[in-house]
Design a protein around this nucleic acid. Structure first.
Length: 484
RNA sequence: CGGGGCGUAGCGCAGCCUGGUUAGCGCGCCUGCUUUGGGAGCAGGAUGCCGGAGGUUCGAAUCCUCUCGCCCCGACCA
């Protein structure tokens, strides 16, 4: 195939098309075609989600949470019990009105999130302060009839986990809200190699029915932000709506303080847009379903024999060390094509073994990272070097992602400068002062064609200043960006 | 939901305006031989309810109506 026949549109040419190309060539997913706004997650893509699930699940359990499962269908009346919650979700509900050949007396909604039905059961399960805290997590699918969908980032049906906890004091619920935010932040940075900014959402962007909402915001390569995880302090709103009461140590009845928190298959989209390049997917070793691929190279039959023997042996040694390794022994395909095949799928390390290498007692190792060169290592160090590369690549991916973000992060103090950063579709991470008025926030969004406050970063110094738009006093800078 | 674009082979597309034999091209796929250190070559071959349903017509991928879905830009959101 000619060079100009590239299957992946370069990022700087058309970022949205690049994203779709990477998903297709990476064999991650495809549109469901026959079901609006839904997608089929293919094995390679689903493996990424499984990797995320596995690590997060361990972290949840290590902090005392237990998994449970609640029904997919929720009585419509439940959604209505919490005023803001209805208002927030009503437009995007899918409703089941018929079942068993009859019209239902009360329709069910397909869960958009489970606060309400879990609230109902919490009310049954909780009666004493001794029942608290109650720390529940659910791995599930949910459905939100969004106006516009994008693969992984916003599909009608998506997979997620939703944590739901009940506490006897607000303080304890606040600690829980922040603890889970930290877990999300650690996971994103340690496992996904994706730096994030933790902060509190403004009232405008708050979860429907929450007292406060926190998020981790990730930087995508087009300098847009992506909300990658949220944690909500629900106060007593759902406790009151579902009458979840407990008797405290003094014998008085009180409503529980609840939290909820979640991440979704959107993280797969985040992973793609954070790291991948014009060749295709780039995966951090800690999530890569395949850590290394061994590509044999030979011409003659006798070469084939000794090359395959060496490849098989190395593969076995790597597998014994806990890596998942593919040996690409497909016949009739040239090595170059195999390289592209595995690069598009994001395999972190490629091992090449040919007759010349065997003669020299070496193997060739190639990292998936952009700009990396082949390195030749002695055969007896192939395993240790490959293992070491896993850690090196993981760290390098984080470092590069962080650098990309920092290179696109600015502090701005004048409205003119601010506007200049955001011409049509352009973006950066901008730290600027904001007076706290939702009207001003809305005004900024309208005047810039979509720039929003991503969050109020937690680790920002309290530094007084003047609002970028209104000029009124501000306590600290907030993070502005275009966002998915 | 508003604006724009698009559904033709597994993928990417041409053909449609101006209706007319058997619907094409590239890649991929199958067979054989030659190949294999960055997307191999030659020869043969398979694959299409032209997104779906109506209509106009002697005749529809092509014209008309409706519908389903996808993509992009907005408003809504994980």
């Amino acid at each position: 195939m000619a060079k100009d026949d590239k299957k992946i549109t370069p990022r700087d040419q058309d970022y949205a098309q690049w994203y779709l190309d990477v998903i297709r060539e990476g064999d991650l997913a495809e549109p469901a075609e026959v079901v609006k706004g839904c997608m089929v997650i293919k094995p390679h893509g689903y493996a990424l989600w499984e990797g995320m699930q596995g690590d997060l699940d361990r972290r949840f359990k290590a902090t005392g949470h237990k998994n449970a499962y609640f029904p997919l269908l929720i009585p419509q009346s439940f959604i209505r019990k919490e005023a803001e919650h209805v208002e927030g979700f009503a437009p995007e509900l899918a409703v089941v009105t018929h079942a068993g050949g009859k019209e239902l007396e009360e329709p069910y909604v397909v869960r958009p999130t489970s606060e309400t039905i879990i609230g109902h059961f919490f009310a049954k399960w909780i009666s004493s302060y001794r029942d608290l805290p109650l720390l529940i997590n659910q791995w599930a699918n949910v459905m939100r009839w969004e106006k516009r969908t994008r693969m992984f980032l916003r599909t009608t049906e998506f997979l997620w986990q939703e944590g739901h906890t009940a506490h006897s004091t607000h303080e304890e619920a606040e600690v829980e809200t922040r603890r889970m935010l930290d877990i999300y932040g650690d996971f994103a940075e340690e496992i996904m190699a994706m730096p994030v900014i933790k902060g509190e959402k403004t009232a405008t962007e708050r979860f429907a029915g929450a007292l406060s909402t926190f998020s981790i915001e990730a930087f995508m390569q087009n300098a847009w932000a992506l909300q990658a995880g949220t944690s909500h302090d629900l106060g007593q709103n759902f406790g009151k709506a579902f009458n979840v009461r407990f008797q405290n140590e003094q014998g008085n009845l009180d409503y529980v303080w609840q939290t909820s928190w979640g991440v979704s298959t959107r993280l797969v989209g985040a992973l793609i847009m954070c790291h991948s390049d014009d060749i295709g997917l780039v995966l951090p070793p800690k999530l890569a379903p395949i850590h290394a691929v061994v590509v044999p190279i030979f011409r003659k039959a006798h070469e084939r024999e000794r090359v395959m023997e060496a490849c098989t042996k190395l593969r076995e040694e790597l597998v014994a060390k806990g890596l998942t390794v593919e040996l690409d022994d497909r016949e009739g395909i040239k090595p170059g094509q195999k390289y592209y095949h595995w690069e598009a799928r994001g395999v972190p390390v490629r091992v090449e073994i040919g007759p010349r290498d065997l003669d020299k007692g070496q193997v060739a190792l190639k990292q998936r990272l952009e700009g990396s060169e082949r390195e030749f290592v002695p055969m007896d160090q192939a395993v240790s070097r490959t293992l070491a590369l896993m850690d090196e690549i993981q760290a390098e991916m984080f470092a590069r992602a962080l650098k990309r973000r920092e290179d696109a992060t600015v502090t701005v103090d004048s409205w003119d400068d601010f506007r200049d950063i955001f011409p049509e579709g352009k973006s950066k991470f901008v730290y600027a002062h904001w007076c706290g008025d939702p009207e001003v926030e809305k005004q900024i969004k309208e005047e810039t064609g979509g720039v929003t406050i991503r969050n109020i970063p937690l680790d920002q110094p309290q530094e007084p200043g003047e609002c970028i738009r209104s000029g009124r006093p501000s306590k600290q800078r907030v993070l502005f960006s275009r966002a998915y």
